[in-house]
């Protein structure tokens, strides 16, 4: 079954063709890096206007790259839940129009389910059940993935997502946007133990996260150093901050795996591309005899291939959306 996936929940306009939920025939992603740099972050109305301009071109590019036409498409899968409302609407408007004009089934999906499937798409052999950590600028969840499309939400962020903390710290330090890759790079020569930043809620029994206090601690320390006229070892600050985030994410995830008595961890989302996060997860899991999986780098950030893969799995369960499909910016993962 050939599925066209469409994803416009935040600031990436994306379309992809995926066969049988496993084989990516093409993926087209238009990022809005120029707008991010101009505005220092995602402005919903600005992002939605860009989606409206690009959506047709991106879908056409996905078709052309795969050497297919819309006549070959057997279903359309689209992100309809969780994200920026005006951005989600553009993707859903496009998806339902194609579904109607081509008389093919439509399925609306939760953005986070897409990220869970990004790793299943990268590693078809990944066993179920497993614990999945989704971590990006917009979300930060721990999910018990019981089987395909069956989820138990264990925890989520109470304020900032980890990626958001990366972005805000990078912005504060004047390092640019997006913050994840620049801090990752800057941290390489830095000493992660130079500063002792808090590991927020690391001892808390819940599986929820909170990164806004850590962000404040970094900013306060920075201001304090400036006030005293001290030197600012940026690589050390970046590395110490990154280490605090990584420690927290790894500790909470492993506790969830142990609580569920499982041996498999899936880490997905934009921050799963972070090299230090991958290293610490890999080392810690190896010690504990746990298998850890990360998506291909191209599937870490928002993309439509993961939406098509999730759509395929849902359709195999007999699910369909009708042409009245609407968007739900704050919908729970469900499942």
């Amino acid at each position: 079954m050939l599925i066209l996936g469409i994803e416009t929940s935040c600031d990436e306009t994306s379309a992809a063709l995926v066969a049988d939920g496993t084989k990516i025939l093409s993926s087209a992603i238009a990022t809005q890096l120029d707008l991010l740099k101009k505005y220092g972050g995602v402005v919903p109305e600005v992002a939605a206007r860009r989606h409206t301009e690009l959506i047709g071109y991106v879908i056409k590019e996905a078709l052309d790259k795969a050497g297919r036409t819309l006549d070959d498409i057997e279903a359309v899968a689209v992100t309809s839940r969780q994200g920026l409302i005006s951005c989600l609407m553009v993707g859903v408007a496009a998806a339902k129009s194609i579904s109607y004009a081509k008389n093919v089934p439509l399925i609306g999906l939760h953005h986070i389910e897409g990220h869970i499937f990004a790793n299943i798409l990268s590693h078809p052999e990944m066993p179920f059940p497993h614990v999945c950590l989704t971590v990006s600028g917009g979300h930060n969840m721990l999910v018990h993935v019981q089987e395909k499309c069956r989820y138990e939400l264990l925890g989520t962020t109470l304020d900032d997502a980890a990626g958001e903390a990366f972005d805000k710290i990078a912005k504060f330090l004047g390092l640019g946007f997006p913050g994840g890759p620049v801090i990752d790079k800057l941290s390489k020569p830095g000493n992660p133990e130079a500063f002792s930043f808090p590991r927020p809620m690391i001892k808390n029994k819940s599986f929820d996260f909170s990164f806004s206090g850590l962000k404040t601690a970094v900013i306060n320390m920075f201001k304090d150093k400036i006030a005293r006229g001290e030197k600012l070892p940026l690589p050390d600050i970046a590395a110490s901050f990154q280490e605090a985030v990584v420690d927290t994410l790894v500790a909470k995830t492993l506790r969830a795996v142990e609580m569920k008595d499982l041996k498999v961890v899936s880490v997905t989302g934009g921050v799963s591309a972070n090299s230090r996060l991958r290293q610490v997860f890999t080392e810690t899991c190896k010690r504990k005899g746990i298998k850890v999986f990360f998506p291909d780098l191209s599937l870490c950030t928002d993309n439509a291939a993961m939406i098509a893969a999730a759509g395929y799995a849902r359709m195999m369960l007999g699910e369909r959306s009708d042409l009245r499909l609407n968007v739900f910016p704050n919908a729970p993962l469900g499942g």
Partner: peptide, 19 residues
């Protein structure tokens, strides 16, 4: 309505492209 015209234009263009 900014939202309204994004919906209408997207539906119009994708119907035209698809059909």
């Amino acid at each position: 309505s900014w939202t309204g015209i994004k919906v209408g234009v997207t539906v119009g263009k994708m119907l035209a492209f698809s059909a």
